[in-house]
Design a protein around this nucleic acid. Structure first.
Lengths: 210, 210
DNA sequence: GTCGACAATCTTGTCAACATTTGAGAGACT
DNA sequence: AGTCTCTCAAATGTTGACAAGATTGTCGAC
């Protein structure tokens, strides 16, 4: 693994983890020092992250961490809804019985973590469930697009996880998705996933109004 | 517009136009000479096009034009189906009466060009119709994703356009989409778009079997 | 006091040279 | 003949220096 690739991953993670705030300037020289590499590696990373939608670059004016508006977050979730429904349907078709057991185990863990005080644990289980469904679907294209969309809206997802009562509301929706996948019912799985993400969109819409 | 951006666009177009075949090696030094620029500009372009899925890069081993398998082309079209349905629905909601007139005009032109001998003209009208629907939808996120997916499968789209009788088959589907959008019926628009792209998937599946 | 031109400075864009890695082919040995 | 190793050539990875462009601050005229 070349230094450039490592630096790209590190910078991506640092943006996702919130080490850089939206709007922060990303100066090539400074980053080159921070990550102990040449400017070329940083430039390459910035080009790649720009293509991923995490960074904004203006000619001769430098790069900044992209700021995602509520409107964009809604559109991202709408696009995710369309793609994750496809993924859920494919997962319902392709999941093995081992997969079924794993999904049910995750739901059980979510049930235990749905407590208010365990918001972080629930959030991680949520990410795990969606990721495993992507992998089980075998739909590489949709899986990559969704992973990218998730990253783009990471900042807003974080706020969402902190909402009181949110875990309990989404637990039922996650159960419905897994039940449909385990039953092998592709239409029901797609519908359950659509319902789930539209409830997320409703929350975002309420924020947009406020 | 900096030289790097220009070179990136030129290289992208050259790949899409078929000047480079899938599997062709993209040597940095050679491309730098071809496009009269330094290697840095080429490297930047390759990184960007790799993120777009048009180019494949292996560490220390160089870049090649990405080869899209039939399986991938099917998945790409499935993802497009999910996203373009969303776009069609949004277009049905947001299109103005001017937009309606334009869409109907495009359909009229397609009707005239549906003749076998005008495959190229029909293909361009097809691209125009889908592009205008994306713009009318106002859904930036989905529009960008679809535009990218379309580019990725460009090679297969080209073969599709050459199929005898294909124009006539898709003309009816395009009519249905436009009618639903003009009627402002979002559900019907989404359904019509789904039907359209699933007919494309059927054709690809038949290729996959052969 | 305000507006516009100009200079200083900071940042990115570009290039050329050097280092590293990989793959292939020649040659020797079994 | 086959295979192993060594060497070399080709291509990418990396660095540093220089050029070009943009913003900010300053000075002078009105």
């Amino acid at each position: 693994m070349s230094r450039t690739e490592v630096v790209t991953d590190e910078l991506r993670q640092d943006i996702l983890k919130g080490r850089f705030e939206p709007g922060d300037r990303l100066l090539e020289i400074q980053l080159a020092e921070d990550y102990s590499c040449g400017r070329a590696a940083i430039r390459s990373a910035l080009v790649e992250l720009t293509a991923e939608g995490l960074v904004e670059r203006e000619a001769n004016r430098g790069a900044t961490v992209r700021r995602i508006t509520i409107t964009e977050a809604i559109q991202i979730t709408e696009a995710r809804s369309a793609l994750e429904s496809l993924i859920a349907a494919q997962a319902a078709l392709h999941a093995t019985s081992d997969d079924h057991a794993e999904l049910l185990a995750i739901i059980a863990d979510m049930h235990d973590a749905a407590d208010e005080s365990l918001g972080r644990a629930y959030s991680e289980l949520n990410a795990l469930l969606h990721r495993r469904l992507r992998e089980m679907s075998g739909h590489t294209i949709a899986a990559q697009l969704v992973a990218n969309l998730r990253d783009r809206a990471a900042h807003h997802q974080y706020r969402l996880a902190l909402m009181p009562g949110r875990s309990l509301e989404s637990l039922g929706q996650h159960k419905a998705i897994v039940e449909a996948v385990v039953a092998g019912d592709e239409d029901a799985a797609a519908q359950a996933m659509t319902d789930h993400l539209h409830s997320v969109i409703d929350v975002l819409n309420r924020w947009g109004d406020a």
